[in-house]
């Protein structure tokens, strides 16, 4: 039987400690990478209701006629002015739609996207009922619940969501809210924003500027 000296034992223990710390550090780094927080800023004063975002989204995501991943609401202000408010899934931090899903077809990713696995959805509609923003619908083609994904298939490739890319006035700004250097973070830090229905506790991640009260329901 071989015996090891105290010095060797300390060496092995030290290297094990270093390896453990290094491994934890690498985990922390990957957590940081996964810790992005995708969010959107919408400047209502810049939207003039051209619906380019709606069309781009429908074309990009094969959204059937009659249902919408994003839509633009037209509201008449008390003074008679007209305002256009783009709306969509708010990719909430505390998503009410994830909780009632019986099969876990709806889930939240590490970087804050709330997504639907159409292969797991049984079409019970609990998430549709639970979404305070009317962002979900039954896809008439698949029967599964469907909604905006922030174009996760595009942002993975470093591209912007279709609605953001198509907006002619840059009313929509998309980015990583946890990155202090990102445009969306700088804007949200600088201007006074509002979210929709904060009373539901959903912690939505679409920040509106110049949102009138009449459109905030």
């Amino acid at each position: 039987m071989s015996s090891i000296s105290r010095r060797e034992f300390v060496k092995v223990a030290a290297s094990a400690l270093v390896a453990t710390v290094a491994l934890s550090a690498s985990k922390a780094t990957s957590r940081e990478v996964g810790g992005r927080r995708w969010a959107m800023f919408i400047d209502v004063s810049k939207c003039y209701g051209c619906m380019a975002c709606v069309v781009a989204c429908a074309a990009e995501n094969n959204v059937p006629v009659g249902v919408f991943r994003t839509w633009v609401e037209r509201h008449v202000l008390p003074g008679g002015g007209v305002v256009f408010v783009p709306k969509q899934c708010n990719h909430c931090d505390n998503p009410p739609c994830v909780k009632p899903c019986p099969t876990g077809a709806t889930y939240r990713t590490a970087d804050g996207l709330v997504l639907v696995d159409p292969g797991k959805c049984i079409g019970c509609g609990a998430c549709i009922v639970a979404c305070p923003y009317g962002a979900r619908y039954f896809n008439p083609l698949t029967g599964a619940a469907d909604k905006c994904t922030f174009c996760d298939h595009r942002i993975k490739l470093g591209r912007l969501p279709a609605c953001v890319e198509a907006c002619p006035t840059r009313a929509r700004v998309f980015g990583d809210l946890s990155d202090p250097g990102s445009e969306v973070r700088r804007i949200v830090d600088r201007v006074q924003t509002r979210v929709l229905k904060p009373e539901t506790g959903a912690e939505p991640q679409i920040y509106y500027y110049a949102l009138p009260e009449v459109a905030s329901k």
Partner: peptide, 9 residues
């Protein structure tokens, strides 16, 4: 974290 809450259904 991924599947928050418990589904009553």
């Amino acid at each position: 974290d991924t599947y928050s809450g418990v589904s009553l259904i």
